[in-house]
Amino acid sequence: MWKAEIRVLLKKSVLDPQGQAVENALGSLGYGNVQDVRIGKYLEVSFDAGSRQEAEAQVREMSERLLTNPVIEDYTFELVEE
């Protein structure tokens, strides 16, 4: 059993209105040193796969087909064997 921990973030080139709002809120709470906040999604997908290589390929495929929208989002992931 594998667990993919997938992080999805808006691309750097895309404005992140939620991140902006939190950044401003932190600023007004006195955290003047905050320079950037970005908000994304975190997904955990548990699944069976024959090998790490196979598992990685599947996570990429899932991410590109459904889990992210490549027009506006980037993703990274980690694989944990369970």
Partner: peptide
């Protein structure tokens, strides 16, 4: 339609959230 690739671009959160 955008998700299906029939149109270019993407739609996301309104700027005022």
């Amino acid at each position: 339609l955008l998700e299906a690739g029939l149109l270019p671009g993407a739609l996301y959160r309104n700027i005022n959230l």
